[in-house]
Design a protein around this nucleic acid. Structure first.
Length: 471
RNA sequence: GGCCCGUUCGUCUAUCGGUUAGGACACCAGGUUUUCAACCUGGGAAGAGGGGUUCGACUCCCCUACGGGCUGCCA
C-alpha cells in the first residue's frame, strides 16, 4: 500500500469486480471519478474487487483495464487487489472486537435463515437480532463464529450525499452486519471501508445502488473512529426503453462502443454529459470537462442511452480531431472490429485524404465507407448505383475529360476549371458530370467531393481510373 | 412487507418562488448543394396525478401512481 496522500488532496477510486467486461455504466462511474480527481490535482485509484474467487478472472480484469485505457482514463499507481488485503481486513475486524464495537456471533446460517423465513411468512421484520450481542465472553462456545458489527440501535445514521442530498436512515432499520465470515474472510461491507480508508479515499463516487450501503458503511467508519468520505451516489444508466440496462439492449460493454466506431473523446463527452450538465454546454473538450465537472451538476434521475445523440457528438469529435490523432484511432477501430489493417500505401493516402473524410462521417464505419476510393485497388468495381452512372454517354464525357485533366495544373482550382470547361461545352451542370466521375473514381455514389478525391489520388491514378471506367 | 431514492418536450437536460418554461439530439417543412455529411430558416413537442404553503409554484411540504435500489456469512 502506498503512503497516505498529502492532506487536503482529493482521492477518488474506481472499484470494479473482475467478473466480465467493463460495463458502460461502470465506465461512466470511472469517468466521473477520474474527472473529479484530475480536475482538482487529486489522485484517481483503481481497486479490483476480486474477493469473489468463484467469479473473478484475470481475463476479466485485463478486459476492464483495457477498456479504461481505451477510454483514456489513466490511474495512479498499480491497481490494488482487494483479495490480497484480506489479512488487513481481518485485522480490522479483530480491532473492532477489541474496541467493543463488534462481537462474535455463534449463530449458524441455517438458524438465521429459518428465522428470516418465519419472519417473512408472518409479515414481521426480518431484521436479525443476534443473542450474542451482549453475551459474556465466558459463555462463548467452542464453535465457528462470525464477527458482527455492534451497530447502534437507536438514533439515525445520516448520509450527506452530494447528489442525493441528506438521506436519513433509522438505526432500528439496520441489523448488525457480518464483517468477518466464519472462515475468516471479510465481507464486502468491511473490505470496502477498510480499503477506502487505507487508500485515503476522500470522495466515493459510485452507483446509487450503493446508497443504502453507505449508511451501513458509515457505521463501520464510526466504529473505527475513521473519517467518513464524501459520498456521491449517481443514478444508473438505463436502456433506450427506460429499463435497467441489460444484455438484451445490445451494447452494454464499453468495447462494443469501440467496435461501433466512436472515438474515445466522443464517448467521454457523451458519457460525461449523460446525467451531468454544465448549463447548455453539449460539446466540450477534456480540458473543459475537467474544469467544469462537479458533483452538484449530477442529476438525480436515471438517464437513458441515446445512440442518435452519441452519433451526433461522435461526428463532431471526428471532425475536430487532429489528423495525427485520428489516424491511429481509425486503425485501432479497424483492429477492434476485425477488419484488415491498413497497408503503407493506404495509410499514406489516408493521411492525405483525412481532411475531406472527417467532416462527412459520424462514425468510423461511415468514414471507412467514404474512404473506399482510398482503400480499394484498381480496377474499381462499381456497385449497382455507380454502374448506373456510367452509361455510354457518361463514358464518352469521361474520355473527353481526360486530355483536359492531363493538361490541368493539379490543384483544386486547376481541376475544377478543367471539369467545368467540359461540362460547359456540353451545356451540363456540374452535377451531371460529377456523378460519372464519382463512379469512376470510387466505384461508389457516396464519396467525398470529386475534386478532393482527384487531389488525394494524384493525376496518374486519377487518369488510370477514368480510363478503366471509360473503357 | 419494511426502509431509501427518483419523476420537466420522444431523449439528454436548464431553471435553484416571479421566464412567452431555455438549449441540444431526434423529428417535420423549406432553402443551399457535386453524392454523402455539413450548413441556413421555420415548426410541432414537457413540469406524472391530487392536495396544501404562498401575493405567486416546475421549484417548498404531504398523499397517490409509476420506476428503481437495499433488505446476504454477493459485490
Amino acid at each position: 500500500m502506498s503512503a497516505p496522500p498529502a492532506s487536503g488532496q482529493i482521492v477518488t477510486r474506481f472499484a470494479p469486480s473482475p467478473t466480465g467486461y467493463l460495463h458502460i455504466g461502470g465506465a461512466r462511474t470511472a469517468l466521473f471519478n477520474w474527472l473529479y480527481a484530475r480536475g482538482r490535482g487529486g489522485l484517481f485509484l483503481l481497486r479490483i474487487e476480486d474477493t469473489d474467487r468463484e467469479r473473478s478472472t484475470p481475463e476479466a480484469e485485463a478486459a476492464i483495464l483495457r477498456g479504461l485505457t481505451w477510454l483514456g482514463l489513466d490511474w495512479d499507481g498499480e491497481p490494488i487487489s482487494q483479495f490480497a488485503r484480506k489479512d488487513r481486513h481481518a485485522e480490522v475486524a479483530r480491532e473492532m472486537l477489541a474496541r467493543g464495537s463488534a462481537y462474535k456471533c455463534f449463530c449458524s446460517q441455517e438458524e438465521i435463515e429459518a428465522f428470516r423465513e418465519a419472519a417473512r411468512a408472518e409479515g414481521r421484520s426480518t431484521l436479525f437480532r443476534s443473542p450474542w450481542r451482549d453475551a459474556d465472553p465466558a459463555t462463548h462456545p467452542d464453535l465457528p463464529f462470525v464477527i458482527r458489527l455492534k451497530a447502534p440501535r437507536e438514533g439515525q445514521t445520516v448520509i450527506e450525499d452530494q447528489v442525493q442530498g441528506r438521506v436519513t436512515f433509522g438505526n432500528d432499520q439496520m441489523d448488525d452486519m457480518v464483517c468477518l465470515r466464519a472462515d475468516g474472510t471479510p465481507t464486502y461491507m468491511l473490505a470496502v471501508v477498510v480499503d477506502d480508508h487505507d487508500m485515503g479515499v476522500t470522495h466515493v463516487i459510485r452507483g446509487d445502488d450503493h446508497l443504502t450501503n453507505a449508511a451501513r458503511q458509515t457505521q463501520i467508519y464510526r466504529a473505527m473512529d475513521w473519517d467518513v468520505p464524501v459520498w456521491a451516489h449517481i443514478p444508473l444508466i438505463h436502456g433506450p426503453d427506460g429499463k435497467k440496462l441489460s444484455k438484451r439492449h445490445g451494447a452494454v460493454g464499453l468495447q462494443d462502443y469501440q467496435a461501433m466506431g466512436y472515438p474515445a473523446s466522443a464517448m467521454r463527452n457523451y458519457l460525461c454529459r449523460l446525467g451531468w450538465s454544465h448549463g447548455d454546454d453539449e460539446f466540450f473538450t477534456d480540458a473543459q470537462a475537467k474544469e467544469w465537472f462537479d458533483l452538484p451538476g449530477i442529476g438525480r434521475a436515471p438517464s437513458r442511452l441515446d445512440f442518435k445523440k452519441l452519433e451526433n457528438l461522435s461526428g463532431q469529435h471526428i471532425a475536430a480531431l487532429a489528423d495525427a490523432a485520428l489516424l491511429p484511432e481509425i486503425e485501432a477501430f479497424l483492429k477492434a472490429s476485425g477488419k484488415a489493417p491498413l497497408t503503407d500505401r493506404q495509410r499514406g493516402l489516408m493521411t492525405r485524404g483525412l481532411y475531406c473524410l472527417k467532416d462527412r462521417a459520424k462514425t468510423f464505419p461511415q468514414l471507412v465507407e467514404k474512404a473506399h476510393f482510398i482503400l480499394a485497388d484498381r480496377p474499381m468495381v462499381p456497385d449497382v448505383d455507380a454502374e448506373k452512372a456510367l452509361d455510354t454517354v457518361s463514358r464518352g464525357i469521361l474520355r473527353e475529360l481526360t486530355p483536359h485533366l492531363q493538361g490541368a495544373s493539379w490543384t483544386r482550382e486547376g481541376i475544377e476549371a478543367a471539369v467545368a470547361g467540359v461540362a460547359a461545352a456540353h451545356g451540363l451542370g456540374l452535377g451531371k458530370i460529377a456523378g460519372p466521375l464519382r463512379a469512376a473514381l470510387a466505384g461508389r455514389t457516396v464519396t467525398p467531393s470529386v475534386f478532393d478525391m482527384m487531389l488525394v489520388l494524384g493525376r496518374e491514378e486519377t487518369l488510370a481510373r477514368l480510363s478503366d471506367a471509360a473503357g
